[in-house]
């Protein structure tokens, strides 16, 4: 594989984490414009852990996940009773709060004779674990793929158990859910923690691939994109958001004949798809049919 293909596939993989994160909340009935915040937390957390504190890579990634999940749950707790636009704006508010906070967040320590760590708006340089460990881009791509598979496996477990059903019930009718004895608050906070953890996971991987992160990378746009991926790809299965990323970034590469008009073509295509399938390509009906077919 040439290095260009590797970098495109790595980006698809990393963006999938963010898209799955937004998708989990969509399933639970909440629109989030702010999952990029947990991606950023994962990137900074894991980066600080390996570059400044010199933790092993796996532990650093784990720290990023815990940070994303923990802050996700913490933010969800007061925001839990908000729905629809209110929740969307609250998530946006938190994400922008965090981003502007990172703009003044300085935490530079001397490591091996160099100052390392986040330097406000100048960003955070030298997250060099992959370089120092001698991991080639292809190896790192495989690592990203493996991590993504573990997230898919986790979602599959939830679907096999009761987790996914709980998310969908609360997402569709929280009042009915409560009258079935379900604790809507716990489901919503759990969903937010899960979504935050997944985004943090992706963020940690991203930081160690890019070796450099800065607050400006975590603006509203990637968050809105991530949200759109799930809606385009479909809310039925976890492959929906991944399909959304593939369609977008894949289209970006394959529609190079349309260079300059790519988004005009792609945007129109997406709008047409949504007219025919309002809940995305792989929607719940597709999931039901698929499950019925499997059972046959």
């Amino acid at each position: 594989m040439d290095s260009y293909t590797i970098s495109v596939l790595s980006n698809i993989g990393l963006f999938s984490f963010l898209a799955i994160s937004a998708w989990i909340l969509l399933i639970a009935g909440e629109i989030s414009f702010g999952q990029q915040a947990y991606f950023a937390l994962g990137a900074y957390g894991a980066g600080i852990a390996t570059a400044v504190w010199q933790w092993p890579f796996a532990l650093g990634l784990g720290f990023g996940i815990v940070l994303g999940a923990g802050i996700g749950a913490l933010v969800a707790w007061p925001a839990m009773r908000l729905t629809g636009v209110h929740f969307a704006i609250a998530t946006l508010a938190f994400a922008e709060f965090l981003r502007s906070g990172l703009n003044i967040f300085r935490y530079r320590r001397e490591v091996g004779g160099y100052l390392t760590g986040p330097d406000g708006a100048n960003g955070f340089r030298d997250i060099r674990w992959a370089y120092e460990a001698g991991v080639e881009p292809l190896g790192y791509l495989i690592l990203i793929g493996g991590c993504l598979l573990s997230v898919i496996a986790l979602v599959a477990c939830l679907a096999r158990g009761r987790g996914m059903a709980l998310l969908r019930i609360v997402g569709e009718d929280p009042i009915l859910a409560a009258m079935q004895g379900i604790s809507v608050a716990r489901v919503r906070i759990g969903a937010a923690a899960l979504a935050g953890g997944v985004a943090g996971f992706g963020g940690g991987l991203y930081a160690h691939m890019a070796t450099y992160v800065e607050p400006a990378q975590f603006g509203v746009m990637p968050g809105v994109h991530a949200l759109a991926y799930g809606l385009i790809g479909g809310l039925g299965t976890v492959f929906g958001p991944i399909l959304g990323v593939l369609v977008d970034i894949g289209a970006l590469e394959s529609l190079r004949v349309f260079s300059g008009y790519r988004m005009i073509v792609f945007g129109g295509l997406v709008a047409l798809v949504l007219i025919v399938r309002p809940r995305g390509l792989l929607d719940e009906a597709a999931l039901r049919r698929g499950l019925a077919w499997l059972r046959r």
């Binding site: 986790l154 477990c157 939830l158 096999r160 158990g161 009761r162 987790g163 059903a165 709980l166 969908r168 019930i169 569709e172 009718d173 009042i175 009915l176 859910a177 079935q180 004895g181 379900i182 604790s183 809940r279 719940e284 039901r288 499950l291």
Partner: peptide, 29 residues
């Protein structure tokens, strides 16, 4: 009628059984 129109009939019924389940069952049955 409050039915979950995006879920199957089976999942509509199953909705009534979740509250009695254990935490472990979230991830695995």
């Amino acid at each position: 009628l409050r039915l979950l129109k995006r879920l199957s009939l089976y999942e509509n019924l199953r909705a009534a059984t979740h509250s009695a389940a254990s935490g472990r069952e979230l991830f695995w049955q």
